[in-house]
Amino acid sequence: MRPLSPTKTPAARTEQIILFRVSGQIFAVSSASVQEVRGVDSLSGAAKEMSYPALRKVKYFVRRGENSVYVINAAMHFGLPPAPPALVFVLRRTRTALLIDGIEKMTSMSRLQALPLAYCNEERTWYRGLTALDQTVVPVVKPDGFLTPDELFLLDASLSQEADAEAKHQAELNAPDEQQDEHNTSITQ
């Protein structure tokens, strides 16, 4: 008689996550959602500062092809005390990059619990849910929860207006030179 073969329990599905710090608070993000991790210094060449009073958390924008990627101060987004950011996460499939203090570690989570329904305000757009890791609870951020479609529309419109104003200003600066050139040409003829 053959012994019964041991039943195999299916391996628990896990998701790789990055734990990161913002003003001393730990958050998690799926590592699949992070396209690039860069130092803040590396931004200085490509990023242009922007100030949109209604969205003070948006600090810079970076042109990437036809689109602009908006760089968000995570501490301001979450209403945490300001802390000097050291790293930027460029988030995949979004037009958002996130200024954070640092990476805590990479790990995996096996269970994501929905945010309890008692949390019924803006935070529902911030988080995919909560996970318990090493007897602590960590919120898992939603990559597309940092800017709403309406906010993106406003930011795009603001940049577009700035570009138009800049183009107009350049045209005005160039206009006297062009008139002078035309005048000189007519005298020569």
Partner: peptide, 25 residues
């Protein structure tokens, strides 16, 4: 109590109980 940023002032944070994450009000 584990606390994280949110905007629902009536909720203080969450506790872990029997593997569940339970909000504290």
């Amino acid at each position: 109590i584990f606390r994280f940023p949110h905007r629902t002032s009536e909720v203080e944070g969450v506790i872990l109980r029997r593997g569940r994450i339970v909000p504290v009000c």
